[in-house]
Design a binder for these strands. Structure first.
Lengths: 199, 199
DNA sequence: TAAAAAACTTAAGCTGGTTTAAGAAATTAA
DNA sequence: TTAATTTCTTAAACCAGCTTAAGTTTTTTA
């Protein structure tokens, strides 16, 4: 009976267990602090101006984070697929209105950890403090590398690197979103693809 | 007598205490796990090809992180001044050779936490897990915002924003380093400064 | 299954920022 | 205090990537 409670988010539990040890009791407690949320393609978890209340784990599907820039066009800053966390940490830490949108690119199942209740949860299951330390360190490490790649390569090289490293991922997003993430116009991406067809 | 041991790094201890509570015993234990290191301007804490062994807290002075790009020129990715942590987290997590250099821009006092011994330290002073979770979350939040600013503003706007937000900081670094950090050539920065003199 | 909407392509002209090359000013070392 | 070195400036030619505008293809909705 007790494990029926977390068959709703097997990836989530498995991911936690990869980094920390949890008793069935821990999982029991945890399950009272998290919710699973199903969202349809194009639905929002967060919109500009709101204070970001949750930390979101992608159990299934695909999310994106973006903002609307000065010219009124969407600028994507991150994607999150299975087993990734996504949130506007500045907004939730500072309790300030977010500049970002969090939206489903595909129908998605998301595990929601309420930022407010997080402290309380950490007290009851202290290993989670460690788990999130590891997740944040990992995310920060990835972003240190991203800054490097961003400077290092031309937009064209950047595009080709990305397609090479994440081909499965490129299949799942429309090209204009890839262009936005890479910081180029769809027109220029189209030109690059013509110049160097990628199978 | 016991607090003589940490008058060597008052900022460090104060910073820890701002986020977690520590007994004198905790501090005693901690002090056996960290070292203070004085480095002169232009000395390195890490060079390309080495595995990053430490996590560095700037007690005093100013550090920079950079790499050598394809054209053979330095690209600065981060500065760290008093009360900031600096490390190549990817290199230390993956135990892979770093692509980066960590170097003193000014003479500096640095508190070194050995990445290898960190796990052991966390077992003895568990609150530190929380402290570093907060530090990593904060660093990651800042980098989420940085990606936004980077896309959002032209290089010129970026420069002016930076000078406006961190004037004291701009005073402490040579202009070619600011140019490198902003991802522009020193020549272009010079042109921008001529166009819009900032008192 | 037809019409509307969303996504992608093409091509020409334009601009923000680089490159190159030289000299001037400021800092550091002897 | 002089020489060496490092940092900063100027200006002209150049190019990666954008803008604009129009047309084509694919996906969604009715």
């Amino acid at each position: 009976m007790s494990h029926k409670q977390y068959t709703m988010y097997p990836n989530f539990i498995q991911h936690l267990k990869k980094h920390i040890s949890l008793t069935d009791d821990d999982i029991q407690v945890l399950s009272t602090y998290v919710k699973i949320k199903s969202i349809k393609k194009k639905e929002f978890l967060l919109e500009e101006g709101q204070i970001c209340k949750g930390n979101y784990f992608v159990e299934a599907g695909l999310l994106r984070m973006f903002y609307i820039n000065g010219k009124g066009t969407e600028q994507i800053t991150q994607f999150a697929l299975e087993n990734w966390w996504l949130s506007d940490y500045m907004s939730s830490m500072m309790q300030s209105p977010s500049k970002f949108y969090l939206q489903a690119v595909e129908d998605a199942e998301v595990v929601v950890v309420d930022h407010q209740k997080q402290e309380e949860l950490f007290k009851k299951v202290p290993q989670l403090e460690r788990y999130f330390r590891i997740m944040m360190q990992r995310a920060y490490a990835a972003s240190q590398m991203r800054v490097k790649y961003f400077h290092d390569y031309s937009k064209e090289e950047n595009y080709r690197q990305f397609v090479l490293l994440f081909p499965q991922f490129v299949q799942r997003i429309p090209q204009y979103m890839l262009a936005s993430y890479l910081g180029i116009t769809p027109e220029y991406l189209s030109e690059l693809r013509k110049k160097h067809p990628i199978t």
